[in-house]
């Protein structure tokens, strides 16, 4: 009656670890992470690609994991909030979010952080306005928007300082 229970092969690298399993094709990357791998740092806020809470990096690009079927991206490298930094060494963006009070309830925060990290790679950071425009896919109902922009600018400033330091 239904094909949904017919599992298909799923091969991913998640936070540096290999994941291989047969999965029903309707399992989203988000539900795979949250419900089958206990990686609950990636959040579900709408399941429709409208809020950005589920943002993860797939092959270095920010994507909404609720819009991707896990079996549809074979061999992709997935990085979630749990894959950032290491014990005792926060990623600079994570630290900046704490420093700048860039969250309140914390629910959209992993998505904002993953999105912000990708944003820096994309280079759309010439002004606060540009950062706002390119972060607008990540909603925050607590309204921590000012702090998020401050945090992103803090990391940009650190990177520039580091670059200047290296050049010198």
């Amino acid at each position: 009656m239904t094909d949904l229970s017919v599992a298909r092969p799923c091969r991913l690298e998640i936070n540096g670890k290999s994941y291989v399993a047969d999965l029903p094709p309707c399992v989203t990357l988000l539900d795979l992470l949250r419900e089958r791998l206990d990686l609950t740092g990636t959040k579900k806020g709408c399941d429709h690609g409208q809020c950005g809470a589920c943002t993860v990096l797939v092959d270095g690009k920010r994507v909404k994991s609720c819009l991707i079927f896990a079996v549809s991206i074979p061999d992709a490298k997935v990085i979630t909030i749990e894959g950032l930094g290491s014990e005792g060494h926060l990623h600079p963006m994570q630290q900046a979010f704490i420093d700048r009070d860039a969250f309140q309830c914390g629910y959209c925060t992993p998505g904002q952080i993953m999105s912000a990290i990708a944003l820096l790679e994309e280079g759309h950071t010439q002004s606060r306005e540009e950062i706002r425009e390119f972060m607008s896919g990540n909603l925050c109902r607590c309204g921590a928007y000012n702090g998020i922009i401050d945090a992103i600018e803090q990391v940009i400033a650190q990177q520039q300082k580091n670059r200047t330091g290296e050049a010198a």
């Binding site: 994570q94 979010f97 704490i98």
Partner: peptide, 16 residues
């Protein structure tokens, strides 16, 4: 003071 629950929230360890 920065939020003391900040670490749990920016690392995804906070459980909802």
């Amino acid at each position: 003071v920065s939020r003391i629950d900040g670490f749990a929230k920016v690392t995804g360890q906070a459980r909802y």
